[in-house]
Computed example of a mutant assay.
Amino acid sequence: MTDENDAPDAGDDGEPIDILLVEDNPGDVRLTREAFKEGRIENNLHVATDGVEALSFVRQEGEYADAPRPDLVLLDLNLPRKNGDEVLAELKSDDDLKCIPVVVLTSSKAEEDIVKSYEHHANAYLTKPIDPEAFIDTIRSFETFWFSVVRLPPNGDPQ
């Protein structure tokens, strides 16, 4: 058994973990950055503010040609241009991208949103707390679970 102090502080290859946060609310972006900055896991947090930008980033298209392939995507549902449901469905239907874990992080507690997210193969569904301290606690719990307990798929081209 691994002692908590022996938990990795980066990916298995010693590199920081690349996280794509897809979020259009600047306040939530700021709180997420703050939570990850104070966390134990070394990471690179990239931000896309709408669904079209998120897909371009993940597909490494256009201005994102040199973007790293994310180890994990944190996805809001309520986004401009292309909503989170559409982004999730496209990611999970693409053979080259479907192994990237996608965690829905949204303010919606609606049962239909939860069901639809899992039908589109979300790896988890988290509801954003309204209170900023509770929000930061949620992100820290997420970080501990996803980067210290869960084994992420290898990053890179699946060829």
Score class of each variant (00 low, 15 high):
50 D>E: 15
50 D>M: 02
50 D>L: 04
52 V>E: 14
54 A>S: 11
54 A>V: 01
55 L>K: 06
56 S>F: 09
56 S>I: 03
57 F>C: 07
57 F>T: 01
58 V>T: 14
59 R>V: 00
61 E>I: 03
61 E>K: 15
62 G>T: 06
63 E>Q: 12
63 E>T: 08
63 E>V: 06
64 Y>G: 05
67 A>G: 09
67 A>E: 08
68 P>F: 06
68 P>E: 02
70 P>T: 01
70 P>F: 03
70 P>L: 04
71 D>Y: 01
71 D>A: 13
71 D>M: 06
75 L>G: 10
75 L>A: 08
75 L>D: 09
76 D>P: 01
78 N>P: 01
78 N>C: 03
79 L>R: 07
79 L>Y: 00
79 L>V: 01
81 R>I: 00
81 R>S: 13
82 K>R: 15
82 K>Y: 00
82 K>W: 02
84 G>L: 07
84 G>K: 08
84 G>Q: 07
85 D>M: 15
86 E>R: 13
89 A>Y: 05
89 A>N: 12
89 A>T: 08
89 A>V: 04
89 A>H: 14
90 E>A: 14
90 E>L: 14
90 E>V: 07
91 L>F: 03
91 L>R: 12
93 S>C: 11
94 D>N: 15
94 D>R: 12
95 D>L: 09
96 D>Q: 12
97 L>P: 10
98 K>W: 00
100 I>K: 08
101 P>D: 06
101 P>G: 04
102 V>E: 11
103 V>N: 04
104 V>C: 13
104 V>P: 12
104 V>E: 11
104 V>W: 09
104 V>F: 10
105 L>S: 05
105 L>N: 09
107 S>R: 04
107 S>C: 08
108 S>P: 08
108 S>Y: 00
109 K>D: 12
111 E>I: 05
112 E>T: 14
117 S>E: 09
118 Y>C: 10
118 Y>Q: 11
119 E>F: 06
119 E>L: 13
119 E>R: 15
119 E>S: 15
121 H>T: 06
121 H>G: 00
121 H>N: 13
122 A>M: 13
123 N>H: 12
123 N>Q: 11
125 Y>S: 14
125 Y>N: 14
125 Y>Q: 14
127 T>R: 07
127 T>F: 05
127 T>V: 15
129 P>L: 11
130 I>F: 11
131 D>A: 15
131 D>F: 03
133 E>L: 13
134 A>P: 00
134 A>M: 05
136 I>F: 04
136 I>S: 05
137 D>K: 14
137 D>P: 01
138 T>P: 02
138 T>I: 05
139 I>F: 01
140 R>F: 00
140 R>E: 13
140 R>Y: 00
140 R>G: 04
140 R>A: 10
141 S>A: 12
143 E>D: 14
143 E>F: 03
